[in-house]
Design a protein around this nucleic acid. Structure first.
Lengths: 254, 254
DNA sequence: CCATGACGTTCTGCATTGCCGACCGAGGAG
DNA sequence: CTCCTCGGTCGGCAATGCAGAACGTCATGG
């Protein structure tokens, strides 16, 4: 494979840097962090700004991400086949289960949420489409780590941070967990990522049965669990939804 | 201003092209549309793919936008000050008015929706964050066109497409409309963009009173209107919310 | 069944392009 | 007032990425 384009790689690095830092970043911070000459970084930033990918605060001169990224990210969702097919099933699942529904795809050593249906009551909830979840502690992540070879390797190699006292961090324990997940066909997360929250997820398969994503339900542990286990009704609902979406995507029934 | 970086401009053009076309695009389509040599377009696409900005369908070889854009677009929202400050006010407005609330900023001859609160009932609604609305026919757009100098010029110069029979397309009529908007401090859209839907919007000002966005409410004409006019209760609620957000952003009270 | 075209991809030499480091003016802190 | 740091600019050099042709592959159709 011939060489990638240097300026593009650098531009992408700058965008990621801006996305990572919570606050706005100055030109010098950018150039020193990435080891670029100031002039070089400035040229890239100026072009990105012209294209709407970054914006500059007029008073401080500092840079942040631009609106065009939001527009393009939205367009990505429009083309996304998995999401399109899953819309109606996710809605039904939220209604039937009475809890929030998430659909995620593997991305960059994590799970990228591409769809989110609010719990069907009128409580305040923030939309999490575009957010990332860890592979090793969430139900969506574990399902993907169990079925997707790439995510599998990433989850094993990465550092498994303990978010709560129940997070599984040991490699052997985690591998066993993935084994179980694969055997029974679904994964759970009972207060392994957030205190008080539990979730269930099942894999979505595309054509030729490659895993393309996962669908899951998340809610307060009191509602989702019973005797320390996920309510079986919910597990069945999630697995049904996953199967339906997979069928829509053209996965064989075998 | 020294020259912008060619490869970045081209990459941005490719991304926009991919965002525009509904379906996936082949390499040849991309290169011929933009007048690039195939090899050149391929190099850019390969790099963009490596960085996660585009994805390639393994079977057809065609390209589409990538997941990284969704992640970055989401990060944009995190940093967005207007949106952060507006969250709670938008929620209150939706509750008080009983209708969907939208917050938009001027972008690329249109309004980019940066926040959207669903109507507080459990009907099916699709999230429209990241979507674009026209400047000349929507309440949000007219407010921005009236207050923001850049949007003003864009709205006057652009072609004003008639979406319904009530859309204002004549330049003189439109200018008069903006005049009224500026005088009374809010704009409406009664079936000028979508049949059966009406909306009201008011401007949000930042420091030094520059207009930075607009907040509006949209709903079925039967609920939002009365005797062919927007219900005054709703107008007051929207203007109150806009004032509150502006105050949060540091706009002077003068 | 082979010719044909279209496609995505690779290669290579050339010169355009964008990189670098030094240089400016402005603002802020001491 | 001076010094330091900031964002921004400039110009020369060569590395970089570009253009165009060539390749392998697939689907098509004669």
């Amino acid at each position: 494979m011939p060489g990638p384009i240097q300026s593009l790689e650098r531009a992408a690095a700058i965008l990621r840097l801006l996305a990572g830092g919570e606050r706005r970043l100055g030109l010098s911070e950018v150039s020193s962090t990435l080891g670029l000459a100031k002039g070089t970084a400035h040229g890239i930033l100026r072009t990105l700004q012209q294209e709407g990918f970054v914006e500059q605060d007029p008073v401080s001169g500092k840079y942040q991400l631009g609106a065009e990224l939001l527009r393009l990210g939205n367009s990505y969702l429009d083309v996304h086949e998995l999401r399109a097919r899953a819309l109606v099933w996710a809605d039904d699942l939220a209604r039937a289960g009475g809890e929030s529904v998430y659909i995620g795809v593997p991305h960059h050593q994590g799970v990228l949420i591409v769809h989110h249906v609010f719990r069907p009551d009128d409580s305040r909830q923030v939309l999490e489409v575009g957010a990332m979840q860890p592979l090793h502690s969430t139900a969506l992540g574990k399902v993907l780590a169990a079925y997707d070879p790439v995510a599998h390797g990433e989850a094993l190699d990465a550092e498994r941070k303990a978010f709560t006292s129940r997070t599984v961090t040991e490699r052997a324990d985690f591998e066993a967990l993935l084994e179980i997940t694969k055997e029974r066909g679904w994964a759970s997360d009972i207060e392994e990522t957030w205190d008080g929250l539990a979730s269930v997820a099942a894999p979505i398969h595309g054509r030729r049965r490659v895993p393309v994503g996962a669908v899951g339900v998340t809610g307060a542990i009191e509602r989702v669990c019973e005797d320390g286990h996920i309510r079986s009704r919910l597990v069945a609902a999630v697995r049904d939804a996953a199967r339906s979406i997979s069928r829509d995507l053209g996965a064989g029934p075998f």
